[in-house]
Design a protein around this nucleic acid. Structure first.
Lengths: 136, 136
DNA sequence: AGAAATTTGTCCGTATGTATC
DNA sequence: AGATACATACGGACAAATTTC
């Protein structure tokens, strides 16, 4: 009984698959993912394994879960993880930032990150957060 | 005894208790927490419940877990959450920052945060990270 | 309004894999 | 090599929140 082991735990393999569905639009942003029980049946794993996979997506910002409702796919504007220079992306406000900006937790913020280097060595990382400009 | 926390799931009550032990120094920073199996016996819950509790502490920055080794208590320097102006504090490098700075996860970084306001409304939050020695 | 169905949240107990000591 | 400790996975049960009828 081969537990197929692709070098990665199954919940990560499943997270990867679900991530692809979101990124490809197969599950469009704002839509609900299939229920955990449905996914468990589809991938033939226990519900707990599906929950682990979804937890990964939540941490990555690809999904948001609400009890009694389901798990939503999030739009995630991704950008190279700053190997150099400045990058920008959207991210949901955590509790601290939400309080500062006086908005709801989860409100989309713009995050701009600049990495300052000195001779191949990172000297400083500067991260600026601000609210999305209200469209003109 | 017990619990001023009726209505809270057990893993959160346990997380609260462990957090207090760390904050009070009962479990000193850098020390290992008791093994999950020991904690499970102490609190008389399943190991999974202990794992949930420790996951909370990890997210809060109070603990760091390593497979095969255990869960360390972290020193968490807390500072007033910047109601205005600039504040500075130390914090352990997470995986991303550690990679950028090419240091070990958990290495102490200096975090300086500036809140920019406009008419009583927070306009931008700027966070700068750097290693201990540099003087920006 | 209220009951039922759906869906996620919590918790149990167990087993096995993997990393560290 | 053996013991210890965390990681992953299963399957079951009930609670809590939401939606549907």
């Amino acid at each position: 009984m081969p537990t197929p082991h692709y070098g990665q735990p199954r919940y990560r393999v499943i997270a990867h698959e679900l991530r692809e569905r979101i990124k490809s639009g197969s599950i469009p942003p704002g839509a609900l993912l299939p229920a955990e029980s449905i996914l468990a049946a589809e991938f033939r794993v226990a519900r707990g394994t599906i929950r682990n996979a979804i937890a990964v997506l939540r941490e990555e910002g690809f999904a948001t879960t609400e009890q009694g409702r389901g798990t939503y796919a999030n739009l995630k504007i991704q950008d190279a993880p700053t190997e150099a220079g400045t990058s920008q992306r959207e991210m949901p406000a955590d509790a601290r930032l939400a309080k500062l900006f006086q908005v709801e937790v989860g409100t989309t913020l713009i995050e701009r990150e600049t990495v300052i280097r000195q001779e191949d060595q990172v000297e400083m990382v500067i991260v600026a957060y601000h609210l999305h400009r209200t469209s003109p």
